[in-house]
Each structure stands twice: as structure tokens, then as C-alpha cells.
Amino acid sequence: MNKTLFLGTLTAAALSAGLASAGTLDDIKARGEVNCGSNTGLTGFGAPDDKGEWHGFDVDLCKAVAAAVFGDQTKVKFVPLTGETRFTALASGEVDLLVRNSTWTYSRDTDLKFDFVAVNYYDGQGFMVKKDLGVSSAKELDGATVCIQTGTTTELNLADFFKANNITYTPVNVADDGEALRQFTAGACDAYTTDASGLASTRATLPDPDNYIILPEIISKEPLGPVVRHGDNAWGDVVRWTYFALLTAEEKGITKANIEEVATSTQDPEIKRLLGLEGDMGKMLGLDAGFAKAAIAANGNYGEIFEANIGMSTPIKLARGLNALWTQGGLQYAPPFR
């Protein structure tokens, strides 16, 4: 009976902790950490290790943002979110920023009142099948059973694709990536469809990857990127330009290892502006002058983050493809720091 007391304690604690003020950036500064919505566990993109430390491609962007705001990449709290709870968590202010391979779509941008501030991964939906199925094109999948994650844009794309090609399929809905993998390898479905990056990472972790092929069709555009609340422009700018700083760093050849050296020796005015040696770019965002330097120093530039988490040297083995810099034939392009 006496456990009522518990409620009082908790309420008191929550009330004193949770009084928010005007803008998200000010809130974050007052709170002392960034709340970042993340995957509940997607290998390579965002998952905690056995110590509870978060690692991954999306996670490192959050860490870079924390480094930009506080100069310390550990000042970030990761809130694991499922496909179904992610947007509400962002809308309600539970997280400041959602980096959880979420696709930028019209209705999410307008109707759901969010802002996609950048595209950190250009993706598209593809299919993976077993080699012995003898299928070489997605258009041959007539009558197939297809494993598909619920609560994502892939459901709608899939329906559209089969409709457009006038073929039929049976959907097998699965809850998450791990479950999809299990279903697919057990043979519960002919094809597994999700973002091509996800397919690659899934295929890479199979014991016999050579028995599986990824079909050539990419049936949708899936620009994945960090999301903030609509109307939260100052905070959105921080996230956007932190991301662009990482891109610019790669373009200019600034890495985690050589950043101090570059900072002392560089003559390039843009690098000087980027690293806060010249002008007051940081102030315009409401941050320190060295915000971009701190962000890059955290886990390296975009290319380094890519290689360390999902690149060819990792078990996931994703090629840069569309995500190469524009100078190398990709789509990643940062506006100038000026």
C-alpha cells in the first residue's frame, strides 16, 4: 500500500526535470544532451553493443551533432524507436532528432509536419531471392510470397510495383529486420524486400551469401535522412550544417587523423571558415566557432563514418554508389560554407 509514495517521488522528479523552454536548441543546451531517436537494433546503422554503447552509420551522425553543440560526442542520449513509434516520439518532443533510416516523402514532410533536413543515405527498395529460385528480374515474381517489414514505405511501394506490372503476390508481414532474415532464410517467403542497403547488410550476415542474389530492379527512391520537427528551423539548421560539414570535410580531405594538422597548416579559405579559424560561422547557428571541427573530429568525415560502419571493410560491404561525393559520380553534395 505504501508504494503510493513512489508515485510522488517520481512525479516530483519528472516535474522538476522536464520543464521545457522556447526553442529546441536552447532546450538541448539547457538539458546538456541531445535526445536522438534511433533504431532498436539494425546492424551497421544503429545498435548498442554489449556495453550499451551505440554504434552505427546513423548513430555517428547523432554523435557528430552532439559534438557540434557541446564539443563532446558523448553528450547524446539514444532513444530506441520502432517503426511505429518513431514519428510520434519526434512530434511529441521525446526526441529532438530522428536518425533512423526514415524515408523523405511528401506526406511525411507536409501532413505529418516534419522537416527532413538532409539526405545522409540515398537508397532504393530492392528484392533479394534465393539463387535456386531461378529468377533474374523482379517482374518474374508473379505469385511469389514476399517478406516485408510493416510500418514502412516499402509496403506501399511493393503494392504499387506489383500493380503497375499487373502481377500478384502474397505479403508476409514481419516486425523487424532480424525476423525478416529468419523468415527468409527459413524459406517462409520467396523474396525479401526492403531498402537495398538493408538487403546488402542482411545478405552479408548470412552464412552462405553466395546462395542469394539481389535483383537488379530498384522499385523506389528512398532518400533516408535526419528528421526534425516542422517549424524548428534553428535546430534544423544545426543538424543540416553539421551534416554538410562532414560532407565538406570529405571533399576537402579532412579526416579525423589529420584535422589538427590541417587546421594549423591550411591556406584554403573555405577550410578556414569550416574549421572556425576565420569568420564567425558558428555564431550564426548559435554554436561555438569550432562546431564543425568538433563534429568532424568526433568520428571523422562522411566517408570515414561510411567506411567504418557499413563500407566495404565491414561485414555489410556496401559500395558508395549514389552516396559517393558528387565529385566521384555520386549524389552527395554540400552547399558551400560561405
Binding site: 519528472a14 522536464g18 521545457a20 513509434t85 518532443g93 521525446e94
Partner: peptide, 16 residues
């Protein structure tokens, strides 16, 4: 997880 926040004043935030 989805709705409680709607029924509370905006400045009150509870953890999940």
C-alpha cells in the same frame, strides 16, 4: 507511448 503526451501540458515531459 503515443497519446499520453497529447493530454499533458506541453512543458511536462515524462520518460517512456
Amino acid at each position: 507511448s503515443l497519446l499520453l503526451q497529447y493530454f499533458l501540458p506541453p512543458q511536462v515531459q515524462f520518460e517512456t
